[in-house]
Amino acid sequence: MPRPRPSAIWLREEPVRKPRLSRERITRAAVELLDVEGVEGLSMRRLAARLDAGTMSLYQYVGSREDVLDLATDEAVAEIAIDDVEGLPWRAAVSQQMGRGRQVMLRHPWLPTLMSTRPLLGPHALARSELVYALLRGAGLDGARLTAAVGALTYYVQGYAAMENTWRGLRHEPAAEADLRRRAQEHLDRAAERHPTLARHADLGNDDFDASFQLGLDVLLDGIEAQLGPRA
Rank of each mutant, 00 (worst) to 15 (best):
A184K: 09
A161I: 07
V157Q: 00
D207S: 15
Q214T: 08
L180F: 15
V132L: 11
M163S: 14
Q158A: 14
Q158L: 13
H201G: 04
Q214W: 01
T154H: 04
S212T: 14
E177S: 07
R183K: 11
G151K: 04
A176Y: 05
R183I: 13
A175H: 09
Q158H: 09
R128H: 04
N165A: 08
G138V: 02
N206A: 07
A127G: 05
G205L: 10
V132W: 04
Y133S: 06
L146A: 06
Y156G: 03
T154Q: 09
G140V: 01
S129A: 11
T166A: 14
L180W: 15
D207Y: 03
V219R: 08
A148K: 05
Y160T: 03
R194Y: 06
A184I: 09
L126V: 15
V157M: 03
G122N: 05
P123A: 13
R181L: 09
E173G: 03
D179I: 00
R194N: 02
H201T: 13
Y160M: 02
V150F: 07
V132Y: 00
A191P: 08
L170D: 13
N206F: 00
R181W: 04
R168D: 11
D210K: 00
G159Q: 10
S129E: 12
L126N: 03
A184F: 15
T147N: 06
A127Q: 08
E164D: 13
P123G: 11
D189L: 04
T147A: 12
F209S: 11
Y160W: 13
L215C: 10
L170A: 14
P174M: 01
A139Q: 10
G205M: 07
G159V: 12
H201M: 09
Q158R: 07
G205H: 08
D189F: 00
A175S: 10
R128K: 06
E193K: 02
L204C: 08
Q158E: 12
T197S: 14
V132I: 11
S129D: 13
Y133E: 08
L146H: 06
R171P: 00
A162F: 15
A202S: 14
A175I: 00
A175V: 05
Y133M: 02
L170V: 14
G143T: 03
G143C: 10
R128Y: 04
A125Y: 02
L198F: 04
L217W: 05
T197C: 02
R145Q: 13
D142M: 07
L204H: 03
R200I: 02
G122A: 07
S212G: 07
